[in-house]
Amino acid sequence: MPFKPWFANIFIILSLVMLSACSTTSEQEDSYSDPRDPLESINRPLWTFNWDYADKYVFKPASTAYVKWVPSPIRSGVHNAALNLNEPFTIINNLLQLKFQRAGKATGRFVLNSTVGLLGWFDIAKHAGLMREEEEFGEVLGTYGVGDGPFLMMPVLGPSSVRDEVGDLVDGYYWPLAVIDFWPNVARKLIIGLETRGQLAEQEALLNDSLDPYEFVKNAYFQNINYRLHDGNPPVVIDQEEEDDLDDMLEEF
């Protein structure tokens, strides 16, 4: 399956959502059981393991050394090549949602980068205006009405949900990921993980400054999923109580 180390999810979340700590703590202070997180008593210790131990003593030092000692052109090349292998499942998942234009863009990216780009070493497609827009099978399920299911904090893999885990499993059966041998696949996952953790370094303050990093990450995770599900244009949801108050104000006016 397409390996996504926990900090890969965190980086995507922080880059797209950028929630404030205030919104996180206000929900915590409401002191109610989050229906999205029935496994919180298990998830919180796993978050502590991921952030305070696995990251502090393994992932962060490794990524820091990788960024410091590996020349940027080599890092960029191997990272592009590793991500290029995700384009085929993006093509299929777009077709399953009848997103033919996006499927065409992903096909163009894969063909250009796999040929002119030397097996993906160079992201030629980006310079041709074809930007990477990864589409996972979990998003396909969401499009057809499958709910997220319980929030999961996976050891090493990080924030997820039942739907996302099923989606990642299916994505791993698409060509060429399904035919890559064990050790080359480990190397691919390691490259993506180290590069992603290196990019996360600039975002760490958002987590460190939040009063409850676990709640911060959980809320941001679900916002990110909603963002991706609607291709960057999530619907605006108005709280019913707020809407009623607004109607009353308009009537008084």
Rank of each mutant, 00 (worst) to 15 (best):
V186H: 07
G138D: 02
L118C: 12
W183S: 11
F222A: 05
G129F: 10
L190G: 10
E165P: 03
W183A: 12
L207G: 05
R188N: 07
L190V: 11
G172K: 06
F222R: 09
L207D: 04
G149D: 05
M131F: 14
R188D: 05
M131G: 13
P234A: 05
D212E: 11
D171R: 06
I180G: 02
P235C: 08
V140A: 02
Y214K: 03
V186E: 12
V179M: 10
T196P: 00
V186D: 05
E195N: 13
V236F: 11
L190P: 00
D209S: 13
P155K: 03
L194S: 00
A128V: 11
E134P: 09
D164K: 09
E195T: 09
L206E: 10
K218I: 02
F122P: 07
E133T: 11
W121M: 15
V186G: 01
N224G: 10
G158C: 02
D123H: 07
E133C: 04
F151V: 02
L152G: 00
G138H: 01
L190S: 15
N185R: 15
Y227E: 09
F151Y: 15
A178R: 15
S161M: 05
A201V: 13
E202Q: 13
K189A: 14
Q223Y: 12
E195K: 08
V217Y: 00
P155N: 07
L207Y: 01
S160V: 01
V217N: 00
M154A: 06
I191F: 05
I225A: 14
V166W: 12
Y174C: 12
Y173T: 15
V166I: 15
L207I: 10
V156D: 00
E134Q: 14
N226S: 14
P184Y: 05
R163L: 03
T196C: 06
D209R: 12
W175P: 02
M154I: 08
Y144A: 02
G145I: 09
E135N: 10
H127Y: 12
N208A: 12
Y173Q: 14
P155H: 06
P213A: 06
L206I: 08
F216S: 05
P184E: 08
D123K: 08
R163M: 06
F137L: 05
D168F: 12
S161H: 05
D212W: 00
Y214N: 03
E204W: 09
Q223H: 13
V186P: 03
I192A: 03
W183P: 04
D209I: 01
R132M: 13
G145W: 09
H230L: 07
V166L: 15
E215C: 04
M153K: 01
K189L: 12
Q223M: 13
R132D: 15
F216A: 00
K218N: 08
L200I: 03
Q203M: 14
D123T: 08
D212C: 02
G142S: 09
G120A: 08
D209M: 09
A201K: 14
W175L: 12
F137I: 03
G193P: 00
Q223R: 14
Q199R: 14
T196M: 10
E204C: 08
D231I: 03
V236N: 11
P176V: 10
P150M: 01
Y227T: 09
